[in-house]
Computed example of a mutant assay.
Amino acid sequence: MTARRTGAPMPESIRHTLRAPQNPARAVECPHCGAAAHRPCRLRSTGRLLAQPHPQRISAWAQASACCPECQVEPTTPCHDEGRARGSVHARRYQEAEETAA
């Protein structure tokens, strides 16, 4: 059996651009199913892999990566409504996160 020869290692910057496109929310861990960063979400009951991330993961990604234009908070700070914490992020924060990811 012959040994398989590989060429020079590919730089990570090129590998990242050639990789199949994936949802940018996969950059963070999923708080719903516990999927690690850069891994697909899965159903907790069966373990089946999902094509799209859970909404909780998308919310966590938006919170981690973008400032909220609605309530003027920095990345990683949860959104609020007049001082009361929200269960999710504002819609404008999703838009801001998508713009910075593009």
Rank of each mutant, 00 (worst) to 15 (best):
A3D: 14
A3E: 13
G7C: 07
A8V: 15
A8C: 07
A8I: 13
P11K: 08
P11C: 08
P11R: 10
S13K: 04
S13H: 10
I14N: 10
R15H: 12
H16R: 15
T17I: 12
R19V: 08
R19N: 13
R19H: 14
A20G: 04
P24A: 05
A25Y: 06
R26I: 04
V28H: 02
G34F: 01
A35T: 00
A36Q: 08
C41K: 00
C41W: 01
C41H: 00
R42M: 09
L43T: 05
L43V: 03
L43N: 03
R44M: 10
R44A: 11
G47H: 03
L50Y: 00
P53I: 01
R57Q: 02
I58V: 15
S59E: 05
S59T: 11
A60E: 09
Q63C: 13
A64E: 09
S65F: 12
C68Q: 07
E70A: 15
C71T: 08
V73D: 08
E74N: 12
T76H: 11
C79S: 06
H80M: 09
H80Q: 13
G83T: 10
G83Y: 05
R86G: 07
G87L: 06
G87N: 11
Q95T: 13
A97D: 03
E99M: 13
E99P: 07
T100I: 13
A101Q: 09
A102C: 09
A102V: 14
